[in-house]
Amino acid sequence: MLTKRIIPCLDIKDGRTVKGTNFVQLRDAGNPVELAVRYCEEGADELVFLDITATTEKRKTLAKLVREIATHINIPFTVGGGIHTKEDVSVLLENGADKISINTSAVNNPGLIDELAKYFGSQCVMVAIDTKIIDGACKVVTHGGRTPTKIKTADWAKEVTSRGAGEILLTSMENDGTKNGFALDITKQVSHLVNIPVIASGGAGKMEHFIDVFKLADADAALAASIFHFREISIEDLKRYLQHQQIPVRIC
């Protein structure tokens, strides 16, 4: 049976792991390679690295970091942040990334999804969607949550799927960093709307939140950062708990 995936996310700034609340107030959470290895050993199913300060001059540093991670871990990992072109993707894949994640650049240039899916295959194209309730409706926001758009989250989810995205990483801006639980309504809506896997993100604070997002919102995977970084919940304990609650998970 295919299992539900638990995915720690590492936000990278200048080669260090950081974590903020509602996408600001960054605090240091350690060396990304050490964290990656620890997560692997604890039974993480995949890892996601988001370079939140990806600028042209930092790309080379990121490529080096990706290579170092790739040589150390034996599970799939995704790299996102500052990807605008096919060439950006090539560099990351050549350094050992398995998938890439695009967000703002896909909103600005939706054709990028088609291009990447055609060239590298859908399996390596994750589209990250940041969603926020604006005027009572879930809308897409870009630039790490700073720029609102008029695009409805549900419409965008359908569009990225038809353009060839392999997975959707859905982050709720209201929930991110709050530890009050995932955004169940929009996660469920998107998961039912598209036939590609949906990774829920933003708001994990307790083990019960994972039960909710899998059982009530039908997410295929759940992503979290700070609760894992700061050892508030261990992946191993979380998985045993989920298994006990009849949710299929990979126990190592």
């Binding site: 295919l2 299992t3 199913d45 392999g166 998961s191 036939n195 590609i196 896997p197 039908d218």
Partner: peptide, 16 residues
């Protein structure tokens, strides 16, 4: 061929 909404295509993840 997916038989219900819980079967996403592609299959992505860990299976036995």
């Amino acid at each position: 061929i997916s038989t219900n909404s819980s079967f996403k295509i592609p299959q992505v993840g860990w299976n036995t």
